[in-house]
Design a binder for these strands. Structure first.
Lengths: 222, 222
DNA sequence: ACAATAATTAATATCGATATTTTAAGGAAG
DNA sequence: CTTCCTTAAAATATCGATATTAATTATTGT
């Protein structure tokens, strides 16, 4: 069969999953777009089975919808959906952050300082690198909450939100906002174990971004 | 190929998904148990592809775990996991119920009254029927919250919790508790649009069940 | 011309077979 | 007797092909 290819250690399904996820989050696959297996087989250079399985995984991440016997499509977007994501993120991350701080120890404090440092030193214009470190930073803040399911939900909602950021167009600068400063202040409050302050800063951070995105025109599905 | 079989309207994947879900929730497939495709092919009388896809869907429901290249297994259980589910359910259902009541209208009120009636009139000893109506009742209370993602999380957590009820053994009666009475009181508070009272009754309902289950011995995985 | 229906095309869902990888077993050496 | 390596068995992951189902186009009758 196929000579080398995905030989290595990682399965074709995982490869397809990561690639498709990336393509949907960045908007390369548009909201509502029909996801044809044949089509994706070529683009990802793999068989139908791994793609089908990857799409099934993405269904539960709410990035893909399965239509009865009519295959898959990228999840559609809407103002309503965006507002819901923002609202839920605030509620769940508030919960996670407070628990995280409640269990704070030196090791965790060092983790978040490091995650912040790594994010702060790269150029935010290098989107893929920055986005990755940005998520790592935010998740590190929550990671100490000892609630894997909650973390999973936060991670899912984070990705759904990032998708809207990409769809709104990444060339936007954030006006008069000092986003790095906001990050630093959230970090400082968390490191100081001040849950109320850290949470209020985090939620404000999200809501400002939410307000900003809300002003941009919605990207229509299909 | 196979003559009749899954002819009808519903796909083999959906059939396998429902069946496997049921088998895991009821404990027919034990926590931590290896889920061998060959094995399941026989039991469900279908091919490997639908089973594989169904298992992928269950992964995101957190009822199944995927191990690198070593297939699937039923999600393990633990006290910690149970506590987390209970905690999250209380937090998320509190949120959903309050929003549901905030949007209350006559149609919703009628829905929950009806759902309660249908649950109340069947014999709780008829487990499959009662469980179905019980979930329908609880979800109907939340359904008015206009937040599909939140509802989905609540539904997931509900199922994860039901699994623990099955694993703890369904023959248990709930001691001195008047569970039907608790349901009625939750319904009444919600119908009266008293969010604080309804929520406090709902959470107490869950926490009592939680305490009860916590006393039973944990079912070991594999 | 237009609706309804029939033929055609395209795409999905599923099967059966195969290559890869993991697990288990069996020896040989230390 | 234990450890490591080799070999055999089992199971997974994936492919290629096919039957089903949905979408599209052509056709016919009014």
């Amino acid at each position: 069969m196929d000579t080398v290819a995905q030989s290595s250690i990682i399965s074709a399904t995982q490869t397809a999953y990561s690639a498709l996820r990336q393509m949907i989050v960045t908007g390369e696959l548009r909201p509502g777009e029909k996801l044809k297996i044949e089509n994706l087989k070529e683009r990802l250079e793999t068989g139908a089975s791994p793609i089908r399985e990857a799409l099934s995984l993405l269904v539960s991440d709410q990035l893909v919808e399965r239509l009865d016997q009519r295959g898959f499509r990228a999840a559609p977007v809407s103002h309503q959906n965006f507002s819901e994501i923002l609202m839920l993120r605030c509620a769940l991350e508030d919960m996670a952050l407070r628990q995280s701080i409640a269990h704070a120890d030196d090791a965790w404090e060092e983790t978040i300082v490091l995650a912040h440092h790594r994010m702060a030193r790269v150029d935010p214009a290098d989107i893929p690198v920055f986005e990755d470190l940005h998520k790592t930073f935010h998740m590190a803040m929550l990671a100490n909450c000892a609630s894997p399911i909650l973390l999973r939900y936060c991670s899912q909602l984070y990705d759904l939100n990032v998708r809207y950021r990409y769809l709104a167009g990444r060339s936007q600068n954030y006006g008069s906002r000092d986003v790095p400063g906001e990050h630093r202040e959230i970090l400082e409050a968390a490191a100081a174990r001040n849950a109320d302050l850290a949470s209020s800063r985090l939620l404000s951070h999200y809501q400002q971004t939410g307000e900003f995105l809300r002003q941009l025109s919605e990207v229509p599905g299909s």
